[in-house]
């Protein structure tokens, strides 16, 4: 990165050189991402379209796309598109869990973020600390806390029995969907609150005052101004938690252990870490990525359109 000291004379030349300088500053990071993010995706493809070692049955990637073998892929696609087949059932279940968990998260996150951002008052700092705190507590530790509470003799049962809601302790960890979904909500909701808060906090107060001045009630102000404005932020918050949720396998593992609640992540984990048919696992990953890419593309299109509308 040698820097030419006497380059101040000609502006355009400087700019081009400057550009090269900035590019070179970004280079190590870009190279890192190419090597450890993009390249691995190519390797996933090569494994998904590859074969297995004849003896160990470990994957043998096909590096050359011309020699790609599509059979593991066909197997996965067939499983995904045959009604009632295992992959499809698991995928639909994952979709349902993610949809329910995301909606519940939004129902919790939006009011909380709204309140802290708009009505936090002098407690704002304290409330904000409470919202940020879960970031510093590992997801697994938070799940562990719930396992403690949900045990047969845990506090959840104690409280519910004491309050008369239940006659006797209930086995919350016996493989029920509700435990898994609530676990996911608990785990992911903090990641949704913060972006929503950041957005709601930034809404120009004058805009809301103007609405009130024009005679809108608080609710009308919210419905006609705040909510439409938060559309993109809600979408972003949904994307931030929903996409990673599609890869979850540890929440059902910890809170259920039953086949009834297994997600697409569990199937991927089984095939990838199981070692005998890694290409099938890799093909599953590719399909999941393709699906998520579609969601991402939809998100981008919607966002760009919204921006354009605001701009116009």
């Amino acid at each position: 990165m040698s820097e030419d000291a006497g380059a101040a004379a000609e502006r355009p030349v400087v700019d081009r050189r400057g550009n090269a300088f900035w590019a070179s500053l970004a280079l190590p990071g870009v190279a890192w991402l190419c090597l450890f993010f993009l390249l691995p995706f190519y390797v996933i493809l090569c494994v998904a379209f590859g074969s297995v070692h004849p003896v160990f049955l470990t994957p043998q990637p096909a590096w050359n796309p011309l020699s790609w073998d599509t059979r593991a892929f066909e197997f996965v696609l067939e499983g995904l598109f045959t009604p009632g087949a295992a992959f499809q059932v698991v995928f639909l279940r994952t979709l349902a869990y993610v949809a329910i968990a995301t909606s519940l998260s939004l129902l919790i996150a939006y009011p909380v973020a709204y309140y802290v951002a708009r009505h936090g008052g002098r407690y704002k700092g304290l409330l904000l600390a409470g919202l940020v705190a879960p970031f510093f507590i590992s997801y697994l530790m938070r799940m562990l806390a719930w396992i403690n509470l949900l045990q047969d003799d845990g506090w959840v049962n104690d409280v519910l029995v004491w309050a008369g809601v239940l006659d006797g302790p209930r086995n919350w960890l016996d493989g029920r969907a509700s435990s898994v979904i609530l676990g996911m909500v608990y785990g992911y909701v903090p990641f949704m609150i913060l972006p929503l808060y950041a957005f709601l906090d930034r809404i120009d107060g004058r805009l809301l005052e103007a609405a009130r001045d024009l005679g809108a009630s608080r609710f009308q102000t919210f419905r006609l101004v705040t909510l439409p404005l938060s559309g993109p932020a809600i979408l972003a918050a949904v994307a931030i938690i929903a996409l990673p949720m599609f890869g979850d396998y540890y929440t059902p593992d910890l809170l259920s252990q039953s086949p009834n609640t297994s997600l697409i992540g569990n199937q991927i984990s089984l095939y990838i870490r199981g070692g005998q048919q890694v290409p099938v696992g890799a093909a599953l990953v590719v399909c999941l990525m393709a699906f998520l890419a579609v969601l991402m593309a939809y998100y981008l299109v919607v966002t760009v359109r919204a921006q354009r509308r605001l701009g116009g």
Binding site: G84, A86, V89, V90, P259, Y271, Q277
Partner: peptide, 15 residues
């Protein structure tokens, strides 16, 4: 092995 693993995966899928 592959037959067994796929059967196992199908069971584990909770179909």
């Amino acid at each position: 092995q592959a037959l067994w693993q796929n059967a196992w995966a199908e069971f584990k899928a909770g179909v």
